[in-house]
Design a protein around this nucleic acid. Structure first.
Lengths: 332, 332
DNA sequence: TTGTAGGCGTTATCAA
DNA sequence: TTGATAACGCCTACAA
């Protein structure tokens, strides 16, 4: 408990406890194999010296970082925070830390400071990619630790994937609209090349084409409140009776835009979203939407990463989604 | 570029380039002091071997982790994600990584697995605390790296602080209500012991007492949408003409609760929030609120941490706030 | 059950 | 400008 100028090392503890450094080390990593007597002595010495394990030394020796890196397209976007919370939870139980990197904030391809330098076994023991717009080549280097893609994805990245059942969710949503008599259905989609947009467009197409229909229009948004609001004019022009939005934020933004233009939801236009963010229930008109469990998605991603690290085969897991009925859809 | 079973080390590069390991090291850390000839040779060898610097070795040698730890009360809460984005940005420019830890997810005081084990120079080069409910003693250990508190805080924690001007924000909000003729003002506050709640209550008190008034009631919420909605009954009972809410989520929740009870905002009750989350502008009634710049707060926190690391004195920085006028307040 | 000793990969010191 | 070498702090055969 004294306050030495230099932090105590394992050696100091050993000397004080009258045992070898190996014994001290064992008390930390595998207490059961050391005699009660030695263990007590070590524990006492640890308290007396104020020793704390130096993780840097251990990590170097064991060639492990003790942390997993999450690659997030936009750290400020609340959509990802719940996923991160799920990831964090599982990692913690496994004794691993969570590093996060905002892929917008990092040079994508600078050879010296770019993303590439993070994809290295000495930087992280594993990587969870939440950004589907990265160059798959980055992850194919032999120096790259195990990778799991979650939520968004891109082809060519090795490793496991966890996805919500995006196509099925979109299909459910549109089917719901069809069941309520809607025929003029508009799709307010995410960015064209985004993997989520692609899957959800599939689901939309599947539901509609079963009835011999197609969207009256597909508008490309940016998954943001603002882009939803800005789409209002174009939506009104296309005169749908219902709109399926690729996420809740665009739906709520569109709701605001429609209201400003004097249209009522759901009387004039029905709306369905995707995600079931908490705010969906508090929107001006509580939003009917597709729930995907973001925390579970994060947990699954972390679990898959751990099992991959333990040598198991990468697999793709598709998480079920379900429709959340509220008040933004009416029958016609 | 060959694919050796074991990753190349600095030694391999040195041999291949016909120089010493020291020279290779210098090419990475301080290229200018090595001759062009040697540098070229090393760079060539690096490419040929596919060498990447092993950060673990460097970190041990330099007794640094290359990362800063952010302690967040609830990683799933979108409020913090923007702060984290600000932190991340500044850290990145300084070549540091961001580790995040959800303080809810970690045993607060388990001696072997608890929070204490993270507050260690071998775990992180610095710590940014966004949780005001932690035991200050944790941060007083000599093994603890530099600390900065941001947003929430508690007394007794050493190091710098960055805060929004909470009292002034609350004062502005209540003054705004007073200016619109309101006299029966209710305060929907955060948890009683929370530092934000305390400061904001001060501001509320200051504005009201200047007019010889006091809140018609103070209700304790939990900063959540749900707690706002649940407060509706109690609010209605107290019959205020206006409510100041300690954050936007509670305000929007309350708005929903009031609407369900058949009251109109702002006709029957005016509402002011705090934070200016993006959703505030898209609430059923666009919410008048106090803006605090969360990204800036995060940036400042990171900057203060860096300057503290460089030996400068810890300081407290109070960031200005401003009123954001929308439609949830009307004159009476 | 315990101790000894070598090595994890890098950087910094010092001398050349 | 360069090279040899000793740390950095810990873990883990291997031997006792």
């Amino acid at each position: 408990m004294s306050s030495p100028s230099r932090p105590p090392k394992i050696h100091d503890v050993a000397k004080r406890a009258g045992v070898s450094v190996a014994t001290v080390s064992r008390v930390f990593s595998n207490p059961d194999i050391v005699s009660e007597k030695s263990r007590k002595a070590v524990e006492k010495a640890v308290v007396e010296t104020g020793y704390t394990l130096n993780v840097l030394g251990r990590n170097l020796r064991q060639s492990q970082v003790g942390a997993v890196l999450a690659l997030v397209p936009n750290l400020a976007n609340p959509f990802f925070s719940e996923i991160l919370a799920g990831i964090s939870e599982v990692l913690r139980d496994a004794g691993l830390n969570l590093l996060v990197l905002d892929t917008r904030q990092v040079d994508r391809d600078s050879p010296t400071h770019g993303l590439r330098n993070y994809l290295n076994r000495s930087h992280a023991d594993g990587i969870i990619v939440l950004d589907g717009s990265l160059d798959p080549e980055l992850f194919r280097s032999p120096a790259c630790p195990p990778v799991v893609q979650a939520c968004e994805w891109s082809e060519g990245v090795p490793g496991a994937k966890v996805l919500a059942d995006n196509a099925e969710g979109a299909r459910l949503a549109v089917q719901h609209l069809l069941d309520h008599g809607h025929r003029r259905i508009l799709h307010l989609a995410g960015p064209r090349q985004n993997s989520l947009s692609v899957s959800r467009a599939e689901g939309v197409g599947a539901a509609l084409s079963a009835k011999g229909l197609a969207p009256v229009a597909t508008i490309e948004g940016a998954f943001t409140l603002r882009s939803g609001r800005e789409a209002a004019a174009e939506v009104i022009e296309a005169a749908p009776t219902a709109v399926f939005c690729d996420n809740d934020e665009m739906a709520i933004g569109l709701m605001a835009g429609l209201t400003e233009a004097g249209l009522q939801v759901p009387e004039d236009i029905s709306l369905v979203g995707f995600d079931n963010i908490e705010m969906a229930a508090y929107a001006p008109v509580p939003l009917t939407t597709v729930r995907q469990r973001r925390a579970v998605l994060g947990q699954e991603a972390a679990r898959l990463l751990l099992s991959q690290r333990d040598g198991e085969q990468p697999e793709t897991r598709v998480l079920p989604v379900e429709l959340c009925l509220r008040r933004s859809v009416r029958a016609i």
